[in-house]
Design a protein around this nucleic acid. Sequence first.
DNA 1: CGTCTTTGACCAGCGC
DNA 2: GCGCTGGTCAAAGACG
Length: 516
Amino acid sequence: MTKFSFGPTLDTSEPLVLLNKSSRWNPFAMVPNSPPHAAADGHDRKVLSEMDLFSTKSNSLVVKKEDFHASDLDVNTGLDLLTRVSGDRSSTGDVSSDENRYTSKLAKIQSELEKTNLENQRLKEMYLQVSNNYSALQVQFVALMQQHEQGMRNEIIQKQDQKVDNLAQQVSVAVPRQFMEMTSHGSSSEEKTLSGSGLNTAELSKNADIDGKTVRREDTPDSNVWTSNKVPRLVVPENNEQTNDATMRKVRVSVRARSEAPMITDGCQWRKYGQKMAKGNPCPRAYYRCTMATGCPVRKQVQRWADDQTILVTTYEGTHNHPLPPAAVAMASTTSAAATMLLSGSMSSSDGYMNPNLLAQAIRPGSSSIASISASAPFPTITLDLTHPPNTLQTLNATPFEGHPPSQYFQPPSAMPLQAFQQAGAAALYNQSRFSGSQFSQDKISNQVLPQNHQSQPQTSFTNSLSAATAAITADPNFTAALAAAITSIMGGNAGAITSNNNNDNNSAYNNTHDH
DNA sequence: CGTCTTTGACCAGCGC
DNA sequence: GCGCTGGTCAAAGACG
């Protein structure tokens, strides 16, 4: 309820004392707020605008005239006003006229009280209404935010579908769609003997239509995760046991960040379930799983980079099957967007091989890059390198843990927020389906033809945003926020859903000598 | 006492 | 089949 402050204009001492002394309410006890004409002290005090502001029974304040007599006024000696009035009366000697005057004043006060009570009542109602409206708006806001997020996902899916259609029209060579086929139909011979259409747009559309059903997949630990809901939908149809294919399940997002802190909180809760020494890295690799919800399939690996142990490499796998706290959403969206790009590229590709021409343009040695895609890794992995300041970013040269030789890099071409970035990423991933199978065939790469509609795009805009994001990252100790800023910059603020990254790794973990 | 971490054991995939 | 490696399990201990 609105609480009205009497403020500095209220002289609480006198009326309070009076009220304590007399069980009968005396309107003149409100001397401090009596109208000027009622106050003999000459002070221009205002009428108390609100009397009983908190009691619904304030109307009971109405006082009958007959309750007031001159004797009453005389008794209340504690009231300055009354004292003065008595003095005035004694000077005039006209008691009856004074009573009449007090009666008229009382009537005025009563009327004012009624007005103020009515006003108070209106204010109460207004407050209730505002409060209710606020609550309703709050609910609507939450709902809109959810719808907005879903809408962005759908938009991305539509863009992906359009891109896929374009690719289907452009690609005439017979190419296996391993990545998609593996997820939609499992590893069947079909994936390698796909018709010359390259892309089965009808099937792609069908996959896209699966939207809304694939969220369920997140409930299965083996489901393909690491992506926003839309991505798994595209990649993995429901009711397909093949969706549990280990390869697809291993789609990963790796984040490199320079951090001396033993642990970086991203809002999610993680439970360490294992630690092992990995080949080629003196630092042990810690395994975590999300414990924010039972059955959440999200896992992550944390390991310090062998080349620079000040760099924490966190690799995420899976999609949360539960709501995320705000603190976790940023990271989740970031990694999810990256995974979305990766998978969207895989989806848009009609084959499993890289296009050397594309790579030649996508990979610009010496140029900045924070995103790379590993084709040599056992699983499709997109790596976000947040360890380099602007203009000194380096492409990632290997998957973080396995110590493999330099993988294929993807540098987002220019001036391209989400759609273009995704297109470029998709193109870069166009032929990377094979990396899901861990063995990338260079021989096949050389024979591939790719659409390159994105390759000529200028780079300055993206570079600028990238530099800004990187600067924010390097300056911001809040890894999560910084990472979110970076990806938002890349993705044009359309980063979708949810995969959470968290560096819960701690120094103690590295003291262990658990090895095999 | 419940939760979390530690860590040795176990399993699966892969190459030889 | 064997060894290597990555990944996971689960008992035991630590911790609050």
